[in-house]
Simulated assay, not measured.
Amino acid sequence: MTHAGDILDAAREKGLRIATAESCTGGMVAVALTDVPGSSDVFERGFVTYTNTAKTEMLGVRESTLAAVGAVSEDVAREMALGALVNSDADVAVSITGIAGPGGSEFKPEGRVCFGLATREGCTTETIEFGAPGRDKVREAARNHALSLLLDAICAK
Rank of each mutant, 00 (worst) to 15 (best):
L82D: 06
L33E: 01
I154K: 02
H3K: 13
T20G: 03
R17T: 04
T65E: 11
G131S: 12
L66F: 13
V29D: 01
A142L: 03
G104K: 11
A4M: 03
L147T: 02
L151I: 12
G70D: 11
M80I: 06
T119E: 09
D35H: 03
D91S: 12
V138W: 08
E57T: 09
K137S: 12
T119R: 14
D6C: 02
T65V: 13
S88I: 07
E63S: 12
L66H: 12
R112Y: 12
S39T: 04
E110H: 08
G83I: 07
K14Q: 11
V69Q: 10
A10S: 14
L147I: 02
A54H: 00
E44D: 15
I18C: 08
D6T: 07
C123H: 08
V69D: 10
T53C: 00
D136Q: 14
F47L: 09
D136R: 14
A132M: 14
A100P: 05
T56C: 12
G111R: 09
V86C: 02
A54S: 14
G70Y: 12
M28A: 15
G103V: 08
E44V: 02
T20H: 04
M1S: 13
Y50M: 05
K108Y: 04
G116R: 06
E57W: 00
Y50N: 05
T125N: 04
I128V: 15
S64G: 05
K137G: 00
T127W: 01
R135G: 10
S148P: 00
D35Q: 10
E121T: 13
F115Q: 04
F107E: 15
L33R: 02
R78C: 09
L33A: 01
P37V: 07
K108L: 12
A142D: 03
I99R: 08
A67T: 12
V61L: 01
F43T: 02
G38S: 07
T53L: 06
H3T: 00
V29A: 01
G131Q: 13
D152Q: 13
A84I: 05
T25Q: 07
E63C: 00
I154V: 15
G131N: 12
V48T: 15
A141D: 09
D75W: 01
M80H: 08
S105C: 11
A68Q: 15
G103I: 08
